[in-house]
């Protein structure tokens, strides 16, 4: 029925019961300190890329926790790996490594999904 095609049922709700943990588990395996993030935003304040673009390191962490793989693969490209975020983190998280791990894992997932 073509006349119903304008209807797009969807939800903005975070559904914790169907949560894509492929990125998060990988990051936690190699950088367990990530779990202690308290979203203080110190990283975002000092971020070189964030001062030039709308890149937000704190949000990278939040999206990682909620399995937003799609959003992350786009956003992560903006990081310049200067490491200033890691210098200011009060929880002593190696944020630079977190971002590197996300990038690695996304590349792995892409390879897995590409038929040989």
């Amino acid at each position: 029925m073509n006349d119903l095609s304008f209807l797009k049922p969807a939800s903005r709700q975070i559904d914790f019961d169907n949560f894509d943990d492929r990125l998060l588990l990988y990051v936690l395996q190699y950088e367990p300190s990530f779990f202690t993030c308290i979203s203080c935003g110190g990283c975002t304040a000092t971020c070189s890329a964030g001062n030039l673009t709308n890149f937000n390191v704190r949000k990278i962490g939040l999206w990682l926790r909620r399995g937003e793989t799609e959003k992350l693969s786009e956003e992560i490209q903006k990081c310049m790996f200067c490491g200033k975020c890691t210098l200011v983190c009060p929880r002593d998280i190696n944020i630079r490594n977190v971002i590197l791990l996300i990038k690695k894992r996304i590349a792995m997932l892409k390879n897995e999904n590409t038929p040989a």
Partner: peptide
């Protein structure tokens, strides 16, 4: 609400 994400959240 996951207030840091700014989105409602549901969990079982």
């Amino acid at each position: 609400e996951d207030t840091l994400q700014g989105r409602p959240l549901r969990m079982t």
